[in-house]
Amino acid sequence: MNEIADTAPPLNLNGYTSLPPGKLAAIVTFLEMTAPPPPLPERGDGGLTLEHVPAPDTAWYRELFRRVGEEWLWFSRLGMSDAELAAVLGSPAVSVHALRRDGADVGLLELDFRVPGEVELAFFGVAPDLVGSGAGRFMMNRALALAWASGPARVHVHTCTLDHQAAVAFYMRAGFRPYARAIEVADDPRRTGLIARGAGRHAPLIGA
């Protein structure tokens, strides 16, 4: 993903760019680390555990993906067919973990080892009622321990302006450094029916 910063031609993008009806735009920030960082301070486990879910069921995965990410307009996995999603989740180089408390799934971690020498935090999030509780720190410390255990050259993640406003700062506190930005334009998932129309209140639905 370094190619985004290294090979992109210079563009004159100053000023406003209008979007067609039904489109949504976000600024994506790419972050990476090349050595294991010190762990984030924790407040205790609060009854939390991070558990590996081998060969996760697609319906279970979608339900947790939606619970964690709907307010932040996570939609990429919701548009996949069962066969497409099962092929990703069934890969031996993709590792899915559930953050659990009192038997309930309250967070999602997906680590992608498919590129040799790299690990991507493909999806990382906790249920909305746990944001700010310390659950993210708990999960991040364990996510990075799992990622670095494979001996990669780097661990990377990306987030965007549709995510929680503190996401970039949280990743930087965890040891990631930003190295590139991009603009992502996509069909608004609330208009296509992938996500509830009332989700993403920080990014109002336009032209409904």
Rank of each mutant, 00 (worst) to 15 (best):
A199S: 14
R173N: 10
R201G: 07
P41R: 08
T159A: 05
L85Y: 10
I27G: 07
M1S: 14
R181E: 09
T49C: 04
W60T: 06
D105L: 02
G117N: 14
D112N: 14
E110M: 15
H97K: 05
D105K: 04
P128R: 09
R190A: 05
V96C: 14
E3D: 11
F138L: 06
H158V: 00
R62E: 06
Y16T: 05
N14W: 04
W72G: 03
A86P: 11
P38Q: 14
T161Y: 00
R114C: 02
P36V: 12
N14I: 02
L50W: 08
A208S: 11
L11G: 09
A169W: 04
S133V: 01
P56H: 14
F123R: 07
L99M: 13
R190K: 10
W148N: 09
A149V: 03
A135G: 07
D82M: 08
P9V: 03
T159M: 05
I4G: 08
S18V: 01
A104Y: 02
D112C: 04
R201D: 08
M172K: 13
T7V: 03
L11C: 08
L73G: 06
L13A: 11
A208I: 01
P152F: 10
I195W: 04
T161Q: 00
R101F: 03
R43A: 13
R77P: 00
E32S: 15
G15V: 03
P37I: 09
P21V: 03
T161F: 00
